[in-house]
Design a protein around this nucleic acid. Structure first.
Lengths: 329, 329
DNA sequence: TTGTATGCGTTATCAG
DNA sequence: CTGATAACGCATACAA
């Protein structure tokens, strides 16, 4: 492996000079700069990131903290797009990411988790799908030990940013469209789990909309699962003329139930997963661009790592009706 | 951050002694060992992996090289399960993984890719979905610069192992079952892309089966896409009494085409993706345990990194008919 | 503008 | 069995 020492010798300068060139220090003459760069190119030298991080105490290592929740392809699809977006942007920002699943941190204390990440030289963490019950992660966020970006949760402080779509508005948008198209008057809303932050926001949205439009609203608590949505639909849907679901998977479950019951009710979902193109053709849904959200998260993390303060970043969403023709390649 | 120095001071021993305890060196008395471990526990000391790897030239860093191919959730699902399996096993083996997509390496030479990985302290690489055309990766495999595990490709040498199911046998198994159930006599086989190694193996399987059973076989070259499978089916299916597809996605495409054509033909797929539970209910398919395959790959990589030689590891598969009831949670 | 020297947290090689 | 001490590859304060 060619090291900075080799470059220095070959270029006839000191190691520190090479280092300065590589790190774009101001006080280097153009002559030596190009002399060094020539050697760098010729030797194909790439700085050893491990040594650099040990020396500078800065690293470009960030962790993606994912929830490997449901064994449904919906979860897989979303997680994968998160990872793809993050990895892609990381490369552009010269960061490297390691992937961690919350399940692996299950029986660790906040201190242990912190030590673990520190021992790996990780300086930034992106948390996907934080719930109110993840006390260890909350502790870590508050500790300020890392620069953090939280997706879809309103955690913002000096070292923490929040990234995600406007769930309240998105829920309004998709429900409004569906209600308008069907002139619905009585909405059955199947929410997500209570522990999710987005659950509250989406609920706020539907409540606000129904209040404004003088629409009757009944809220049933689902858990983002098809099964539960199916049960709720079977039990209650008859009395309503529209079923608004807080996730696509639940929308699919509700739709299946309606088909079984042999009644029609408009249904709308939330997320825009590809499965909707296969089995949810008639449904409106909120399209979240998970790749972009993750890219934004990395940009934001990069900002934080440069010493800037936490803030809230809102990513745009859209309302779509996913068609089979759109998703096949 | 508590360092080995703190531990040494606190325990009243030399740094090198602490290091020896931590790395299970033989020549340490039980007395000092427990004395040191007490302090380690009390201080919650976790060795700095960055420093350790710089010093020892060994690291526990491995890269997952994934193909972010189709924007279908089938690909996402499989990739995600690969990642999940790898990350999970990595934690158990005290390795840490970084995720890389081939698209990011596109216009790099083998040397550049090698430098990149070396600069990151990566010692092992798992390649998912290698094709015959990935010349850069082939070059890296042959260079022996890294310990490598290749999924679903017959690359084995001193530093390279191959992990995957027996695609030939799996294709035989699923086709045989489907053919037997329907007493088919004329099979239309829609293969994968020619550049894929598994394509050949699966093709061998179906040819062997049809030859043995005296079944007429026509092979059409698909590309793992629904669209292509649909076209092929529309054009040729009428003349055959069974459609065997080299992937679930193609099977779904074929099935859609058959429904459009309003004729029935038994169809079978390959992979066992969850989507089959939604839209491919009537179809047999090969269930690959992608999580397990990836876990095996990590085990294998760990073996290689301990200096053992490359070999071929075959993971079991099964034939299933995916039902909606099985996949909803 | 350039070079020297020190340190980052470990591991590893020797003496003792 | 234990303890100095020299690497590891690089960044950086400081000296020249």
């Amino acid at each position: 492996m060619v090291s900075i020492k080799d470059v220095a010798r070959e270029a006839g300068v000191a190691i520190s000079t090479v280092s300065k060139v590589l790190n774009n220090y101001p006080n280097v003459s153009e002559a030596t700069r190009s002399k060094v760069m020539d050697v760098v190119d010729r030797l194909g030298f790439v700085p050893n990131a491990v040594a650099a991080s040990l020396s500078s105490k800065r690293t470009g290592r960030v962790a993606l903290l994912l929830k490997l929740n449901l064994r449904t392809q919906a979860g897989d699809e979303i997680n994968m797009q998160y990872i793809a977006g993050a990895v892609h942007r990381a490369k552009e920002l010269s960061l490297d990411v390691i992937t961690v699943f919350t399940s692996m941190l299950e029986d660790m204390t906040a201190d242990e988790v912190t030590s673990y990440f520190e021992s790996q030289g990780i300086k930034g963490i992106i948390v996907y799908g934080l719930t109110k019950k993840d006390s260890v992660i909350h502790e870590i966020i508050e500790s300020g030990a890392f620069k953090m970006v939280v997706i879809d949760a309103p955690m913002v402080n000096c070292t923490t940013s929040s990234v995600g779509i406007d769930h309240r508005q998105a829920q309004i948008d998709v429900a409004q469209k569906t209600i308008a198209e069907n002139k619905s008057k009585k909405v059955l809303y199947i929410s997500g789990e209570k522990i999710g932050y987005v659950t509250d926001e989406r609920l706020d949205g539907i409540e606000e909309l129904c209040a404004e439009k003088k629409i009757k609203l009944s809220v049933k608590c689902g858990d983002f699962s098809e099964l539960k949505a199916r049960e709720i639909t079977q039990k209650f849907a008859k009395r309503y003329d529209c079923v608004v679901c807080a996730s696509d998977l639940m929308a699919i479950g509700a739709m299946k139930a309606l088909i079984d019951m042999d009644i029609f009710r408009p249904v709308c979902g939330f997320d825009g997963i590809i499965l909707m193109g296969y089995v949810g053709k008639q449904m409106n849904t909120v399209k979240q661009d998970f790749v972009k959200i993750s890219e934004e998260a990395l940009d934001e993390l990069s900002r934080l790592m440069q010493g800037e303060e936490g803030r809230t970043v809102t990513v745009p969403h859209s309302i779509v009706r996913m068609e089979y023709e759109d998703i096949i390649v």
